[in-house]
């Protein structure tokens, strides 16, 4: 079994974790342990970006995937997000693209934006 060493990205501590099969060491919390096992098997990341917004009091809507998506599909997810055009108003947490690029993960707004000229 291959041993993998990684820096945990779950929290600012940044633990160095070694994973060999189901065995992980160097983590300091259960979330870190679970993340490391996942990272060794199939790395996942949260994608954050912006999409164009029409009729809002700002021109770009910040968005993110609700949960992590496979790291090797990040570019596909980004391409799909870049093809979107969202209409204001938008509420934080609103789904702007369900099942982003077939990952099963929704893309959601991370900011509330009113229509331009309306408060």
């Amino acid at each position: 079994m291959m041993k993998k060493t990684m820096t945990c990205i779950i929290c600012p501590l940044g633990c160095r974790i070694e994973v060999e099969g189901e065995r992980a060491q160097g983590y300091s919390c259960p979330r870190g342990r679970d993340w490391a096992r996942q990272e060794a098997a199939a790395p996942m990341r949260i994608l954050t970006t912006t999409v164009p917004l029409r009729g809002g009091e700002i021109v770009l809507l910040p968005v993110r995937t609700r949960g992590p998506v496979p790291k090797d599909r990040l570019w596909e997810c980004l391409a799909r997000a870049n093809s979107l055009l969202v209409e204001a108003p938008v509420r934080v947490g609103q789904v702007v693209c369900p099942d982003l690029a077939g990952t099963g993960v929704d893309l959601i707004a991370t900011r509330t934006v009113a229509e331009i000229g309306k408060d």
Binding site: I10, C11, P12, I46, T48, T49, T50, P62, V63, R64, V92, T110, R111, T112
Partner: peptide, 22 residues
């Protein structure tokens, strides 16, 4: 700050900076 990494201590979940502000 549209990236995530905010709120873990205060809200127990990982938020983007924009969500944290919201």
């Amino acid at each position: 700050c549209i990236h995530s990494g905010f709120g873990l201590h205060l809200f127990g979940e990982e938020l983007t900076g924009v969500e944290y502000a919201q």
